[in-house]
C-alpha cells in the first residue's frame, strides 16, 4: 500500500493551465457552483481525446454555463441565448474537420433553444453537446426552467412550480441523437469518461450533466450548501445504468439514470453532405 501511494505522488499533476486562458480567470461562477467541476472533467476528457487545441471549436449560448468558452484556449464562440446549436451547425458544416463542442444550460438548450437542439440531434451532425442541468436559470437570478422539479421554488414560482419537467436525455434520444448520456458533477471522474466517449462518438452526442446552483436553487429551496445539493440530487438522486438491474425497485424509483443511456450508429450529416456534393458534381 505504502509503495502505491508513493508511486501516485510521483505522477506529474494534471496541467489544466495548458487548456485554460489564465489571464481570463477568475471565472464568474459562485462558490459551490457545479459549472467549474464540470469544466475540470471536460478538460481532462479533451486531454484524453488527443485532440489539439486548434482542432476544437467550443460554442455556447447565454447563461452562467455558457461563459465556459471564454476561459478555455480553443477556437471559442459565445453566441446568443439558445442559438449555440445553430451557430455550431454553421461552423461544423463549413469546416467539418473541426471538433465542435457545445456548452449549454438547461434553459439555453431546452427552453429558448429547444427547436435548435432537437433539430441538431435529428440531423446527427457530428458535435458534442453538454447540457448543464441545474434546475434553474442561474444567470438571470433564479427563475424556473424546464428542468425545475414540480413543487420547487424559483423567483417566478414562489408558490411552487406547477410545470412538469423535460427529460433532456429522452428528448435527445427521441429527436435522433445517436449518443445520449447523463452525468453529474458529483461523479466527476465518471463524467470525464462519459464526455470522452461522447467526444469520440461520430454524430450528435448529448451529455446532460446534473450540477448545482447553490446561489439560487439552493437558497430558494432551503438547501444549505452545495454539498447538500450534490448529495441530494447527484449522489442519491441518480443511479448508474450499470447497477440499475441489480437494485430493488424501491432504490431506483424517482431517480435519474446515470451513464451512457443510448448509443447507435447512423449516418453523420457532414459525411452525407459530402456524398451529396459528389452526386451533384456528377449531374
Amino acid at each position: 500500500m505504502a509503495v502505491q501511494t508513493a508511486a501516485k505522488k510521483e505522477r506529474a499533476p494534471f496541467d489544466y493551465d495548458r487548456y485554460l486562458r489564465p489571464k481570463k480567470l477568475p471565472h464568474i461562477w459562485c462558490p459551490g457552483c457545479g459549472h467549474g467541476i464540470v469544466l475540470k472533467s471536460l478538460i481532462r476528457a479533451i486531454d484524453a481525446s488527443g485532440l489539439t487545441k486548434d482542432q476544437i471549436c467550443m460554442v455556447s449560448g447565454i447563461g452562467c454555463s455558457s461563459r465556459t468558452p471564454g476561459y478555455v484556449d480553443f477556437n471559442t464562440l459565445h453566441t446568443l441565448h439558445g442559438r449555440s446549436f445553430a451557430y455550431a451547425t454553421g461552423v461544423k458544416l463549413a469546416k467539418p474537420e473541426l471538433k465542435v463542442i457545445v456548452i449549454s444550460g438547461d434553459g439555453d438548450a431546452l427552453a429558448i433553444g429547444g427547436n435548435h437542439f432537437i433539430h441538431t440531434c435529428r440531423r446527427n451532425i457530428d458535435m458534442t453537446i453538454l447540457v448543464y442541468s441545474n434546475f434553474i436559470y442561474g444567470m438571470t437570478g433564479g427563475q424556473y426552467s424546464p428542468t425545475t422539479p414540480q413543487g420547487a421554488i424559483a423567483t417566478t414560482s414562489r408558490f411552487g412550480n406547477i410545470e412538469p419537467v423535460f427529460d433532456c436525455c429522452d428528448l435527445a434520444k427521441a429527436a435522433g441523437a445517436t449518443f445520449v448520456a447523463r452525468g453529474t458533477s458529483y461523479h466527476c471522474q465518471d463524467l470525464e469518461k462519459t464526455i470522452l466517449e461522447a467526444i469520440r462518438h461520430k454524430g450528435t452526442s448529448v451529455v446532460e450533466i446534473i450540477d448545482q446552483c447553490p446561489t439560487y436553487y439552493g437558497r430558494l429551496n432551503k438547501l444549505r450548501s452545495a454539498t447538500e445539493m450534490m448529495e441530494k440530487f447527484e449522489k442519491n438522486g441518480t443511479v448508474s445504468v450499470k447497477q440499475v438491474d441489480k437494485l430493488p425497485p424501491e432504490k431506483v424509483e424517482g431517480k435519474l439514470l446515470r451513464g451512457i443511456l443510448h448509443r447507435v450508429e447512423r449516418p453523420e450529416y457532414c459525411e452525407e453532405y459530402d456524398k451529396l456534393i459528389q452526386d451533384a458534381k456528377g449531374k
Binding site: C57, T79, K95, H116
Partner: peptide
C-alpha cells in the same frame, strides 16, 4: 454548402458560424 435550418433564427445563426469558420 446549403442547409435548410429549422427556422430563420437558426439560419442567420448558421451563416454567422460558417463565416467565422471562413
Amino acid at each position: 454548402k446549403f442547409i435548410q435550418m429549422e427556422d430563420e433564427i437558426g439560419a442567420i445563426s448558421a451563416i454567422i458560424g460558417a463565416s467565422l469558420a471562413g
